[in-house]
């Protein structure tokens, strides 16, 4: 029995080697795994599943979404960076730069092969409906005078992607973000609850995340940190309308592979991604749900990833997280 098992194992192994040695030309000839470092049913998951459906159609092989939500996504994107660069493990990357500075892993743009960015969600600043603040400019003014007077919800751990974007605006306006009262929460929903319950005075989160509470009239959005108003939320002013040169910021999502992905595979994927991005279904799905549409090919994405790393470092240095 034991011997039989041994034999079978050896045989299977030999066969496996023989076939997996096939070149990148016939990629993909088996199902592809798409690592999504977020929970099933969340925003990242939704966009990934739309992409997966499109890619499946283009390449005729299943693209299976695998959710790896633990630890705010760090576990998932680390696994993605460590995967074999054979084109059978791809994944969705988002703001990854803070992790390295917070002592988790050593992920940089070098850890991945950029393919295409398909989404950018801008950060926004929200207040409770009956708040004294009517504009973002007023908030910044108040913080300049008395930095301790406002409790700022990060909408996640502090510093979060949202709060970092807001921090950038504050730093540019000469405010020392180290002394501000940043209040963490377990996700945007919990942050909204805090905001409405009067636990924090302002909250940073994306506009779609706050959409329910906006509709309910419980929350007002002071400004979205975007270059221009969002088509899904035309009533929300931009930060630039109130504060000159307010830097836009938020969260990007992109399809990437582990570092060292063969060029032929990246070529195929980049072409497919552009087609999917421009397809009517994808555009409709994204804009109806309030996801920001932004496309960057692999070169543009690489440049953006470097900018993202620099911006993150600036903010974290000002926050005192990097000495």
């Amino acid at each position: 029995m034991k011997r039989l098992l041994e034999l079978a194992t050896v045989a299977a192994f030999a066969l496996g080697l023989a076939t997996s040695a096939a070149s990148a030309d016939d990629w993909p000839n088996r199902p592809v795994t798409l690592i999504v470092a977020a929970g099933a049913g969340g925003g990242t998951d939704a966009t990934a599943r739309w992409l997966a459906a499109g890619l499946e159609q283009k390449f005729g092989q299943p693209f299976n979404v695998v959710n790896r939500a633990e630890g705010g996504g760090i576990a998932g994107i680390t696994e993605l960076s460590n995967a074999k660069p054979d084109g059978y493990t791809l994944g969705i990357l988002f703001n990854y730069a803070p992790f390295r500075h917070l002592g988790m892993g050593n992920l940089t743009s070098e850890s991945y092969t950029p393919i295409a960015q398909y989404n950018f969600d801008f950060a926004a600043v929200h207040v409770k409906a009956d708040s004294q603040f009517k504009t973002l400019a007023k908030v910044v003014e108040k913080l300049k005078g008395d930095p301790q007077s406002i409790a700022i919800g990060c909408g996640a751990v502090c510093p979060s992607s949202w709060s970092s974007a807001f921090s950038k605006v504050l730093i540019d306006n000469g405010i020392d973000i180290k002394v501000l009262r940043w209040v963490p929460s377990a996700g945007a929903a919990a942050g909204l609850q805090e905001l409405v319950a009067g636990g924090v005075d302002i909250l940073t989160a994306s506009v779609p995340e706050a959409a329910s509470m906006l509709d309910a009239g419980e929350v007002r959005t002071l400004a979205v940190l975007a270059p221009e108003r969002l088509s899904a939320f035309p009533d929300v002013p931009t930060a630039g309308e109130q504060i000159p040169d307010a830097a836009p910021g938020g969260v990007f999502r992109a399809l990437v592979g582990p570092a060292g992905l063969p060029d032929e595979i990246v070529d195929k994927l980049e072409v497919a991604m552009e087609e999917i991005y421009n397809s009517e279904t994808f555009q409709k799905n994204m804009s109806e749900r309030g996801f920001g549409l932004q496309y960057r090919g692999r070169d543009g994405l690489l440049d953006w990833m470097k900018t993202h790393e620099q911006d993150t470092e600036t903010v974290l240095r000002a926050a005192g997280a990097i000495q």
Binding site: G39, A40, G41, G42, A211, S212
Partner: peptide, 14 residues
């Protein structure tokens, strides 16, 4: 909530 959201429905009073 995620599934409702994916269907283009935003849960909330409205």
């Amino acid at each position: 909530i995620g599934v409702l959201f994916m269907k283009g429905l935003t849960p909330g009073p409205t």
